[in-house]
Amino acid sequence: MTVNNRPGVLNRITGLFTKRHYNIESITVGHTEIEGISRMTFVVNVDDERTAEQIIKQLNKQIDVLKVNDITDQAIVARELALIKVSAPPSVRQEIYTLIEPFRASIVDVSKDSLVIQVTGEPDKVEALIELLRPYGIKEVARTGTTAFTRGAQKTAAHQKTAFII
C-alpha cells in the first residue's frame, strides 16, 4: 500500500483496523523511491474473502491512501529481519555457528555469555531459526515484520494462509 507521508497517516490506518475489528499480524512502513510517498506492508489474518475485500475497500477510502494491493495470491518476495539474542556460553558457540549457517544468518554482537544473531528471510524461515535456537535459551527477539513486493514475473499463484496488503 502506498500512502502520502503526512502527519498522522499511520494512526489513520491503524485506527481503521481497530475500528473495524481487524487484527494486524505485522506492519512495516518506510519511504519509497518517490519523495513524500511511503510504503506500508500489512500482514492480516482474515477468515474469508469478503473480509479481505472489505479491508481493502475501507483502506482505499482514506484520502491519504494512494494505492492498495492485495498480494496474498500473487508471486511475491516477502522478507523480514529478526534479531535474536540467545544464551551462548563458549561451550555451545561453535554449535550455534554451524546451526545458523544454512540460514545465512550472521552474528552481529558477541558478549561473555550471549550472541545476537541477525536473520533475514521469509517469516517461515525466521520462525524456523527461532525454534532451532530455542533450546539454547532465547533472551530477546526483535522482528521487523514483513515487507513485500510482487515479483517482476507472475507465475501461478502460490498459496498463502495470511493476507498481505502492500
Binding site: 502527519p7 498522522g8 494512526n11 489513520r12 485506527g15 481503521l16 475500528k19 484520502i63
Partner: peptide, 16 residues
C-alpha cells in the same frame, strides 16, 4: 482533536 476525530470524519487536517 485530530486524533479524536480521525475515525469520525471523512478526513481531517491540522494546519501546521
Amino acid at each position: 482533536v485530530v486524533g479524536i476525530t480521525m475515525p469520525i470524519t471523512k478526513h481531517n487536517y491540522q494546519v501546521r
